[in-house]
Design a protein around this nucleic acid. Structure first.
Length: 154
DNA sequence: GCCAACGTTGGC
DNA sequence: GCCAACGTTGGC
């Protein structure tokens, strides 16, 4: 099993929105970055645990935990000309972008703030605190996952 | 809203 | 295939 961190803007879709969905499950669409896409397509597996990270908001940080319940399949929004995520260069025969389904597991009592994460000695290698932190899907190793989860549940 | 970082595009 | 221009991201 692997661990991941998915970013979202809570104004658009938050951990509370995920918890409120039917079956507490939602597809994670709109990924339009090749490196993130490759993670989704090749490495994100059913049962993997996913931190839900809130960005561009008042309380920036890790808000909760979810689980992958469906592995990569074509992101339908790329075929919809009305969609913000429409990609005219993609086709159903040869889809460029994929998404996975995630299911809510828990919401942390408080958002584990980015500021706090940056002070954690265990987390020096996580993409979040290094350069290139702009990926919307990033891997988290087991040690980092444990440390973050423990800090988030305090 | 600013701005630095970084990914993508497109002309050559 | 280089690289400048441009667009987007995301913390502050």
């Amino acid at each position: 099993m692997q661990y991941w961190l998915f970013k979202t803007e809570p104004d658009a879709f938050s951990i509370d929105d995920l918890a409120a969905r039917p079956n507490q499950t939602e597809h994670w669409d709109g990924i339009r970055n090749y490196q993130a896409r490759n993670f989704l397509r090749d490495q994100v597996k059913q049962g993997d645990k996913v931190f839900i990270y809130h960005s561009s908001c008042k309380d920036v940080g890790i808000a909760g935990l979810a689980e992958v319940v469906k592995e990569a399949y074509p992101d339908h929004t790329q075929f919809d000309p009305e969609s913000h995520y429409y990609d005219p260069k993609s086709s159903p025969e040869n889809p460029r972008w994929v998404m996975v389904d995630v299911k809510f597991i828990e919401k942390f009592p408080d958002v584990l703030a980015l500021k706090k994460i940056k002070t954690m000695p265990e987390i020096s290698e996580v993409g979040l605190v290094k350069k290139g932190h702009r990926l919307s899907i990033m891997p988290v190793n087991e040690q980092e996952f444990s440390a973050l989860l423990a800090a988030a549940r305090v």
